[in-house]
Design a protein around this nucleic acid. Structure first.
Lengths: 230, 230
DNA sequence: CCCGGGGTTTACCAAATTGTTAAGCGTACT
DNA sequence: AGTACGCTTAACAATTTGGTAAACCCCGGG
């Protein structure tokens, strides 16, 4: 389930912006930028980014102030904010965390460190949204999907499914009875970027039916698939 | 950041379930339920609830039996179990504590009492969780990880593992069955700033398997690794 | 009855992941 | 210095998974 994260970059030095921007885009992030705090807040309200990278030292409204302001905005409560700071500006760390920052990145920036740090942050703050366990009770069958253990239990028997099959099943089960169109399935399991052929879903559906039984996944011709438990 | 506690409710009377369920959900708990002992055990294995509320009187497997069975399951050793019993069924108290119950709640149930009782129980549970020693008992093996002594004991035999191997093993064992992605492992064992190559984890995994046996660490392709004890 | 639009299956191949082994490097200990 | 050990990486092998093409089906409409 691939999602494209939006990142807002705030710094007054064009060089830095360009450098970070380049590296983030290469990693597939959607990158926006602003050269000062005021603009940053404006853009943030608009796009509701997942992550904001904020330079501490900026003319006018500095990073700390900007951070505090952003934290006031209710739509952005969930947004992760990280500061960008030169090594040695220790004093700002304390003020930064008080202002509601989630992490610090120190200059000079190494691309690899930057990326892995960002991935870690996004993961840490996203993970909390996913339901770890789904449970389905039918007349004569019980199916449990455990994301954490990556395990599907059918009537007490454990099954280990390959990634795509698991994601597909998890998706269908997440809303029993709901019909997912092929489009939706592609979006949610494969992600908006990846393009695969027409028959790919069918094949995975088939493998699933093979493993969990024919009766659970129902085809609605011309529309899509849905999961049922009866 | 509040953690959502998982509670499993076991009773054969739908009315009771509904009543308690309603009150618990209102308090922000994550509530699961089962109508008999067998199903309760199955669900408990899957979701690893923090608390199980067990009716004593049930058709088939009664509460006492169910409790005993649950106490056998190593992943559920930490789970708090409380019985639900009609006032006056004194005899069952004794049997109940012997079977490993932690507390009793008597019918008729008053919501406020119920909630405060449960909060107290969970509080106690949370405090006891921080242990420097993990112990895992499987069918034909027993593994103990002692952080303080930096020692791993397998079937009574002490092993001294190098730092990375130890940390890796300790991580996996800390949540048996949970699949840790490579990302997570890098984050938690190496830290988000250190960048190491793709094959590094594999090599450590291999060394671990060499030392503690092949069957414990399971690969979930495309996802990560998990520790099992069977 | 035949045809065409999906949907199903199967077989097969390419791509992605993981497993293994061995070698290089650095550090601690002797 | 010499040796041992732990951590990484490199290189290559072994596996698994994912995707596609193509043959097959099923069903409703000419």
């Amino acid at each position: 389930m691939e999602k494209k994260y939006k990142i807002l970059l705030v710094d007054d030095e064009p060089d830095i912006i360009e450098f970070i921007r380049y590296n983030l885009i290469k990693e597939g992030f959607e990158v926006y930028h602003a050269e000062n705090g005021i603009k940053a807040i404006e853009i943030a309200k608009q796009i509701e980014p997942h992550l904001i990278i904020l330079d501490v030292m900026m003319p006018g409204m500095d990073g700390i102030e900007t951070c505090s302001s952003i934290r006031q905005i209710s739509n952005l409560k969930k947004t992760v904010i990280t500061f960008l700071t030169a090594r040695g500006e220790d004093y700002s760390q304390i003020a930064g965390f008080e202002a509601g920052a989630d992490d610090y990145i120190t200059k000079p920036i190494k691309p690899k460190v930057l990326i892995s740090r960002i991935n870690a942050l996004l993961k840490r703050f996203t993970i909390e949204t996913e339901e770890p366990v789904y449970e389905m009770n039918g007349k004569n069958s019980r199916i449990i999907i455990n994301r954490e253990k990556y395990l599907v239990t059918k009537n007490g028997q454990d099954l280990i499914l390959p990634r795509k099959e698991f994601e597909l099943l998890a998706l269908l089960v997440s809303k029993p009875e709901k019909v997912f169109t092929r489009e939706e399935i592609y979006q949610l399991v494969w992600g908006s970027d990846i393009i695969v052929g027409d028959r790919t879903i069918d094949v995975h559906i088939r493998k699933l039916r093979e493993k969990i039984g024919e009766d659970h996944i129902v085809t609605i011709k011309g529309v899509g698939y849905k999961f049922m438990n009866e």
